[in-house]
Write a protein that binds this DNA or RNA. Structure first.
Lengths: 356, 356
DNA sequence: TGGATTTGCTGAAACGATTAAGTTATCTTT
DNA sequence: AAAGATAACTTAATCGTTTCAGCAAATCCA
């Protein structure tokens, strides 16, 4: 009666109801022609037998795997794993799964993952961070019918790939401008890594450009020594801060390229008995949950992560449905400044806070 | 000549070489009987056409999908995403992929993901944290031939599921004992959530048990008021710490159930002008990267995350190969105490540090 | 009443691989 | 030289679905 070996199949259901497998399939796919009575009978048999369709077989036939490949250069990065999380939720709502690969910042691994995903017939690919080299991706896109690809936080110079970027230049500009407005005129920056893993990620040069532009706009000089290289981690932020504070005339304000480094910088400031923001102001970037609760609370830029994940899913699904009418997009998202105590002098805050 | 529609298939390769698809398949699967000359000819055709096998089709036939389903209650949790990362690397080494679902602490989502994964014919399932209810999992395991399941950080009372646990009782015992040895006798604890999401995760009761046992062993009384409930986040640690410090006679030392809360607690201590560890000592749990670099560096317990991920993969692969000879395991991992400055009084450290 | 249409269903060919069971041609062995 | 073994393939079934073309019976229309 039942299956001899593995799970029950559509055949078992069909036999059990005395219909053909085509009819069962019609019920599964909600074909209109099946009368309610038959439909109910088959549904019941499905329940009873505990039948679940084999999606592999379905995918083979329909040429849609209903899974999306995701390659992320480091899932441990809070920004990236939040994106992955959001992405997984959005995709879930569209009955799709996410096959996750962590490329560990290595292009060889990334390339290998990329092809593995294609062999698994993913419907689309999402690249987060610096996971796949431009050459590899470029070569793939030359193929007759590549799957939709969206890159997050990486500005490939390739047509045919969707890019979702955060306007880091603008972010850096706003952060710096905010510090200028607060009256600081010696403003330093803790950047991300300038070369090696992570440096290919979109933000780096943009950050510096925005920072420079804001200084220029304020008539302040750009000074090389005020830019210290970090590694996006807490420890890197500390080291960079130590270098900056050791300068002959250290900066009075710091813009860090992410919150983790900003927190490291704050810790070093505390260590050296400096008060924030009186002695030195700090602005971060990311708005991680901790940022609101540190001492002092951290001024930072909030990135619209949910929107980015949603946009990624939207673009992919649209292109899957009809590639011809949905050309690749390049969308820029803007982070919004969240002003907290780490960059606003108490008296200034009071002056701003009370209506004139 | 080439494909008319999608990707080239094994048929295209066969036609191109004037052999049957069986021969091409034999080359792909490294069958011994194919002579070197033929093999080379076919390999070359594969290169030239750019053929890549369709793993979906392969899986359908071989009944091995070469993917492992992972459901995690919150990928944003640093402990969990590190496990996922490690798992993805171990699986990669065995030519397997990871289909990731984030259940967002919701059992309904978890259940839905669970079945979706099964329909996708995953070879095995990894459950991380509190992602799938015991009922759901139990019901599945009654089926004729369930896939191997390993649960990380969740002690299901079910045979047939592999459990990888961290000996939280022992960890809490060691942490508390360590504080006792440092001379503190009023030791408080910041626990995880006692009910609701997260409370089903293995550690909770165990933590308290270990804490209690260590107090007993030292002849110290257990006091309800010294245990404050947190939520595993920085902010929760701060709140718990504020409650503890507001006590009539506050604790002199704190064990927090994770590092994030410990850092929150430290911040509150600083805010109240308390010195660590002179006024109050703090021990965390997790050994996140930041812990080594905070002010002061945080004493904590390091969890063998890589080992756990490796064990998960090992168990799964072994059971896939031969289920009969590999009964479900329940393995306990132990965290190791990493002593840093947040719990050791300077003079004590000096006394310990200099040889007698 | 008789042809056209609709309703409800079935048969069989895909999808792209693997694989057991055949089929030659060539090489040993006696 | 006949029988058997081996090497180098091919044929065709199969995995579990979807889907299209077909088909009988019922219903409709004039």
């Amino acid at each position: 009666m039942a299956e001899r070996n593995g799970n029950p199949t559509i055949k078992d259901v069909a036999k059990h109801c005395g219909v053909s497998i085509a009819t069962v399939s019609a019920v599964l796919n909600r074909a209109a022609w099946v009368p309610a009575e038959t439909r109910a009978r088959i549904q019941q048999a499905i329940e009873q037998i505990g039948y679940r369709p084999n999606r592999l077989a379905r995918s083979l036939k329909t040429r849609q795997s209903y899974s999306v490949g995701v390659i992320v250069s480091d899932i441990t990065n809070p920004f990236f794993n939040d994106i992955v999380r959001n992405l997984s939720h959005v995709l879930y709502q569209h009955d799709r799964n996410l096959i996750l690969c962590d490329s560990d910042h290595r292009f060889d691994l990334g390339a290998s993952n990329f092809h593995m995903l294609l062999e698994k017939q993913v419907d689309a690919i999402v690249l987060i961070g610096d996971s796949v080299s431009a050459e590899e991706l470029g070569a793939y896109l030359l193929r007759p019918q590549p799957v939709p690809v969206v890159a997050i936080e990486r500005d490939y110079e390739l047509d045919g790939v969707n890019k979702l970027l955060i306007d880091s230049e603008r972010s850096a500009f706003e952060a710096t401008q905010h510090l200028v407005e607060q009256g600081y005129d010696r403003i330093g920056m803790i950047s991300g890594p300038q070369r090696g893993p992570g440096s290919g990620s979109y933000g780096q040069m943009q950050f510096e450009r925005g920072y420079r532009r804001a200084l220029e706009a304020a008539g302040l000089p750009y000074q090389d020594v005020l830019v210290a290289e970090g590694d996006f981690r807490y420890g890197g932020g500390q080291q960079a801060m130590r270098r900056l504070l050791a300068l002959h005339t250290p900066p009075q304000a710091i813009f860090a390229a992410n919150d983790m480094m900003a927190l490291g910088a704050i810790q070093v400031a505390h260590e050296q008995r400096l008060h924030i923001p009186e002695d030195i102001a700090v602005v971060g970037y990311d708005d991680i949950p901790m940022a609101a609760q540190t001492l002092p609370p951290l001024t930072t830029l909030a990135v619209p992560r949910w929107e980015i994940a949603e946009a990624a899913a939207d673009v992919l699904l649209a292109q899957l449905k009809d590639p011809s009418t949905h050309p690749p997009v390049r969308r820029m998202f803007t982070a919004s400044l969240v002003v907290r105590a780490s960059s606003v002098l108490p008296q200034a805050a009071a002056a701003d806070g009370t209506p004139a």
